[in-house]
Nucleic acid binder design. Structure first.
Lengths: 344, 344
DNA sequence: GTTAGCACTCTCAACAGGAGAGTGCTAATA
DNA sequence: TATTAGCACTCTCCTGTTGAGAGTGCTAAC
């Protein structure tokens, strides 16, 4: 589709535009990248590339700017050539700084997003282990005031989550212990999603209605699981405001809206964590299926427990993003988190 | 210091500027507020008010704009006259929408800030009960993996907080129960701050070193209490971007920086919750002692448990803020939260 | 004390002109 | 046939000018 020379010129244009957000002209390319071609030839090629949809002109007599398709080509080219960005400095920073907070996965993720945004100047995002697909390890029930029960849920991924549950019946701590041990033996090793559907099914069968202990256990457990979406961490808004891509107030509103709609981002990251692939994934601008996100690019990867992806971490930024650097950084962070989770 | 007429004119100017962010001129005041004075007279008065520091001119031959001192006068005047803003609609919204989430104080606060920002178009903020000054109710310790303990801390204010603590010694659940009951009997009724200092003191005395059970208990407890600052909730950034006061990108950066520096806002709100007063408090622009906040106003109030303030809720916005409406709203929300906490 | 009148100042929007950058096309060249 | 030099053209952006509009401060009259 594109011969080698055109490929290189396209990449040079994208590269140059990423470094500096001015439309790039033919003259500039010849000077900077020395293809031993005259500006006129570059112009011809650029004209071809524009016709094929890789570039566009903001207006006649401006230089060219990559389209989303152009960025996509660039990213794929990057990956196939496996030119590693030099990321050792970042790697050391990350491992050194995050080494000390292994206990609490939430704090770890929140700090990780902070580093990501600091180094990339884009938005760092992370989704804590998805409650849905994580594995039930055990549950404890604690009596609290007259008619509240505190549930403490443990998963294999190291998640510990408590929840206050209203109960309309009176239970002693002894009752609660019995209920807990029932739930533990019943659900051990299942994913929370499985458990949730199981509860719904069993509660609709009438046999449950007879046995009040089990029925109560089910109701409490259902409540304990009732927040299916993991925590989300976003940071680096101020970083983003410094980028020339966000000098326009409308663009700022756009990303701020996207940021405040947590559900949107959760959905987005959830999609990533469904794919079990090992590589960092990149979604560029209009490739994004969510309406509010079509103006941005996402670079994200999953972190895993065993071979199963349990959550994701990544970066959201303008389509004019330093993909090479960002991909390397996200890769490092996701692998680091995986390592921490497995090491526990 | 100011006679009645001057007071009214000053308030009219502030009012008008709050409604519409154009410098207000003498002509406009005579037409809109009909003081049966000519523009020339108003001009004289305005000139006096400017000299006294209540108003300023963006440039010669522009109208006047209130200074922080001007806003301060307006707010005090408002309070002394006790002109209640009509807030019934908001009151009903709030009570209706938040009624259903009484269990979890964190969710309640996060929703409350959302409503506040939606209705005010400013930033809604809240600080969850300060761990420091809240009262220890009980603690449970749960064994988790080989060398982790999960601590679940309960306070009288309804806070439930868990934390994973590393331990370098092996303990059975039975040991943990003994430790927990020791801690419960030792610390019941004290504030977390008191407990913290107590632990520090006792750990420095050598007698602790002899008794490993107590020493271990102390160490675990210290970890359990180790995040002194409460959670903070901020919402409504997109709302703020719609205000004319934030059409300037520098101003946006300023508030975004303030927002991301959670510690700053925690400090700010903490200061509010130290004052035990019952009324909504207003800090205007430069009155603020924190550097990053001098460009904004804060309207906040504490919510209480018994008569003791435990946390705060409020609004951050531009100095050109609709103080009357905002004060009424913050008052309603803080009282509502107090009611919920006490009702538990 | 209040007001009419007036000169003055400052902002803002619209417009014009010129520099600069980059293009597309054409004709010459290797 | 691919490449290139040359050139006219287009578009943006910056700058300077100009006039309208709004508001002021001052002075003198009421």
């Amino acid at each position: 589709m594109l011969d080698e020379r055109n490929r290189e010129i396209l990449c040079a244009i994208v590269q140059s535009y990423i470094n500096n957000p001015d439309p790039v002209g033919s003259r500039f390319i010849t000077r900077k990248y020395a293809f031993s071609l005259s500006p006129a030839s570059i112009r011809n090629i650029m004209s071809d590339l524009e016709e094929m949809g890789f570039l566009r002109q903001p207006h006649t007599s401006a230089g060219r700017v990559p389209t989303d398709k152009g960025y996509r080509f660039y990213v794929d080219y990057l990956c196939s050539n496996e030119q590693r960005h030099d990321d050792r400095a970042f790697f050391h920073e990350i491992t050194r700084e995050l080494e000390s907070i292994k206990n609490d996965i939430d704090i770890l993720l929140s700090e990780a997003t902070r580093r990501l945004s600091n180094f990339s100047h884009y938005l760092g995002v992370a989704l804590s282990p998805r409650a849905g697909s994580s594995t039930f390890s055990s549950i404890k029930l604690l009596k609290h005031r007259s008619n509240h029960v505190v549930t403490v849920l443990f998963t294999d991924e190291g998640l510990v989550r408590n929840k206050v549950v209203d109960v309309d019946f009176d239970l002693t701590q002894r009752d609660l212990n019995r209920i807990a041990s029932y739930l533990n033996s019943e659900f051990y090793g299942h994913t929370l999603n499985e458990i949730r559907t199981k509860i719904v099914r069993e509660m609709s069968e009438e046999k449950i209605l007879c046995d009040t202990l089990i029925s109560r256990a089910m109701r409490i457990c259902r409540e304990a699981l009732s927040s299916p979406s993991g925590n989300i961490f976003i940071s680096g808004f101020t970083e983003v405001l410094g980028l020339p891509d966000f000098s326009d107030i409308e663009k700022i509103k756009e990303i701020s809206r996207a940021m405040e709609d947590k559900h949107l981002i959760i959905k987005l990251l959830d999609r990533f964590s469904e794919s079990a692939g090992d590589e960092v994934q990149v979604v560029i601008g209009s490739e994004n299926s969510l309406a509010g996100m079509k103006g941005f690019s996402i670079v994200a990867a999953t972190y895993k427990e065993g071979s199963r992806p349990v959550g994701s971490v990544g970066v959201i930024g303008p389509t004019r993003m330093d993909y090479s650097k960002t991909i390397a950084m996200v890769d490092i962070v996701s692998k680091f988190i995986t390592k921490v989770i497995e090491g526990k």
